[in-house]
C-alpha cells in the first residue's frame, strides 16, 4: 500500500466528503447533498435491516426454534408473516391482525404505564407544603398548566384567566428549554468543525 494512502487526509476523505455534503444542504438543495442523502438513507435502512435480522429474526425466532425447539415462537412468526397478506387480495384483511395485536398490547401497557408510572408520581411530587415561594409557584404552575388543557368549557371568564396564567408558565418553560438547548447544539457543531479542521486537514489544533 502506498504511503500517501495512510495519510489522515486520504483515510478520512470519505467521512469529510459526506460531512461537507450534508452541510452544503444549508445553502440549498444540490447534487452533492442529494447523493449524501441517498447514501445516508440506504446505509441506515440497511443498518436497521442487519441489526433487526440478527437480533430478532435470528436470535429470537430462528435459534429458539431450531436449537431449543420452542414452537411457541411460530405464533408471532405466523402473525409476522400475515403482514404480507396485503399482497394477496383474498386474504388481505388478515394483515390487520398483527397490527391489532401490536396496537392492542401497546394500548394495554400504556393505559397502566401512564396512570401508574406518570400520573401517580407526578401528582405525588406536587404535594408540597406552602412554606416557600418556590413551592407555591410549582403548585400554581402545575395546576394552571393542567387547567389549560381543560376541553369541556370555553376558555373565558375565570377559566380563561387561569388558562392564560397557564400559558404564561408554558411560555417561560419553553423559552427556558430553548435557551438550555442552544448551547448543547452549538457544542455539537464545534465538534464537527474540529473534525474537519483538526482531524482531517490538520490546520488547527
Amino acid at each position: 500500500m502506498p504511503e500517501w494512502y495512510s495519510h489522515p487526509f486520504f483515510l478520512l476523505l470519505p467521512t469529510a466528503f459526506f460531512t461537507l455534503a450534508i452541510f452544503s444542504f444549508l445553502y440549498k438543495d444540490n447534487p452533492m447533498f442529494k447523493l449524501a442523502e441517498h447514501v445516508f438513507a440506504g446505509l441506515s435502512a440497511g443498518y436497521y435491516f442487519g441489526l433487526i435480522w440478527q437480533s430478532v429474526i435470528r436470535q429470537q425466532v430462528w435459534m429458539p426454534l431450531t436449537q431449543d425447539g420452542q414452537w411457541s415462537v411460530l405464533i408471532p412468526g405466523v402473525l409476522g408473516l400475515l403482514m404480507f397478506a396485503r399482497f394477496f387480495p383474498r386474504i388481505g384483511w388478515t394483515t390487520r391482525l398483527p397490527l391489532a395485536f401490536v396496537i392492542g398490547s401497546t394500548a394495554g401497557i400504556m393505559f397502566i404505564q401512564q396512570l401508574h408510572g406518570m400520573v401517580l408520581p407526578q401528582v405525588g411530587r406536587t404535594l408540597l407544603p406552602l412554606d416557600s415561594l418556590r413551592n407555591i409557584l410549582i403548585i400554581v404552575g402545575v395546576l394552571t398548566t393542567l387547567i389549560y388543557f381543560y376541553f369541556s368549557k370555553p376558555h373565558t371568564g375565570t377559566l380563561g384567566w387561569i388558562a392564560s396564567v397557564g400559558i404564561g408558565f408554558i411560555m417561560v418553560a419553553f423559552g427556558a428549554h430553548f435557551g438550555y438547548t442552544v448551547m448543547a447544539r452549538v457544542s455539537l457543531l464545534i465538534g464537527r468543525v474540529q473534525f474537519l479542521l483538526v482531524d482531517w486537514l490538520g490546520v488547527a489544533r
Binding site: Q114, M118, T145, L146, Y148, A173
Partner: peptide, 16 residues
C-alpha cells in the same frame, strides 16, 4: 421551578 412545573403539568395532561 416554572419550567419543571410546566413539564409536570404537561406530563399529567398527556398521560390522561
Amino acid at each position: 421551578v416554572p419550567s419543571m412545573a410546566v413539564q409536570r403539568g404537561i406530563l399529567i395532561g398527556a398521560a390522561l
